[in-house]
């Protein structure tokens, strides 16, 4: 197992050390250790049930880990509510199900949390939202309702919604798995732009093309453990672990 960091000059954004997580008797994470640097894009791969979603959900405390430490931007995740809130304010998350509020406009969906959680003035929140909708490529949809948009467009709104809170880290939990294959690319393109813009990202996905092209590093998990970690080139052309080779042989 190799966990070398490729960005020596950058500070560590996420540090996990020996993280264990159980659901009842089932151990979902077994001693997961990894460090993600500022602006690094890490793609987490692995068969379903390997613990990849559980891991990234632990990073903004949607799940609580039971042992080990998780430090996000210098703040350790404990039961202290203030720490959890501080971390959540720096970590944006995009889910498989994009869950927009159906009864309000797209723009309103994006401005809702900045206005009502962050108390951002309305004009500033709307200006920011318009910029973000521009960034995700759907400025013309601002006044529509989510139900009038395609799945791919809705997921892009969800990305804009997460970005509206000005996070320093973005977590993506299988963002394209619920989408029609024709709409996957438009969402991945937005994520690619975000990565090139310097966002620190952790992405759980099955999109090998995205992993190969965009990731700085690929972490491969199986049965709650990190099996292998390295550059896409290393991972796809010269994996060291047998379990990685088996996984690749099954999907490629």
């Amino acid at each position: 197992m190799s966990t070398e960091t490729t960005n020596e000059n950058r500070s560590d954004m996420i540090v996990c050390e020996n993280v264990d997580k159980w659901f009842g008797d089932f151990q979902a994470l077994k001693g997961v250790s990894a460090t993600i640097a500022e602006q690094e894009v890490v793609v987490v791969l692995g068969p379903s049930g390997s613990g990849k979603s559980t891991w990234i959900r632990c990073i903004n405390r949607l799940e609580a880990h039971q042992q080990g430490t998780i430090i996000v931007d210098g703040v350790e995740l404990t039961n202290d509510l203030r720490n959890i809130e501080k971390i959540r304010s720096e970590v944006g998350m995009v889910f498989q199900q994009f869950n927009l509020f159906p009864h309000i406009s797209v723009l309103d969906n994006v401005t809702l949390a900045p206005k009502w959680v962050r108390k951002m003035p309305k004009a500033a929140a709307e200006k920011k939202a318009e910029e973000l909708l521009e960034m995700v490529g759907i400025p013309e949809q601002a006044a529509k309702y989510p139900g009038q948009l395609s799945g791919g467009q809705q997921q892009r709104v969800a990305i804009a919604r997460a970005l509206a809170m000005e996070p320093r880290i973005m977590l993506f939990d299988e963002p394209t798995s619920a989408l029609d294959p024709e709409m996957i690319k438009e969402v991945l393109d937005v994520m690619k732009d975000l990565a090139h813009g310097g966002m620190t990202m952790m992405v759980v996905t099955h999109e090998m093309g995205f992993a190969r092209e965009v990731a700085d590093r690929i972490i491969f998990m199986e049965s709650g453990e990190i099996v292998e970690s390295g550059t896409p080139e290393h991972f796809f052309t010269n994996p060291t672990e047998d379990r990685t080779k088996l996984f690749l042989s099954q999907i490629l």
Binding site: N60, R61, L62, L81, E85, R88, S89, V91, G92, M93, F95, N99, L100, F101, I104, N109, L112, A113, K115, W116, V117, R118, R161, A162, M165
Partner: peptide, 20 residues
Amino acid sequence: RGALDVLAVGEEEALSLGLR
């Protein structure tokens, strides 16, 4: 009333958007 709207999109979304 606004916090209720944030909550209405879903528990996890609300949490990840910084709501308590």
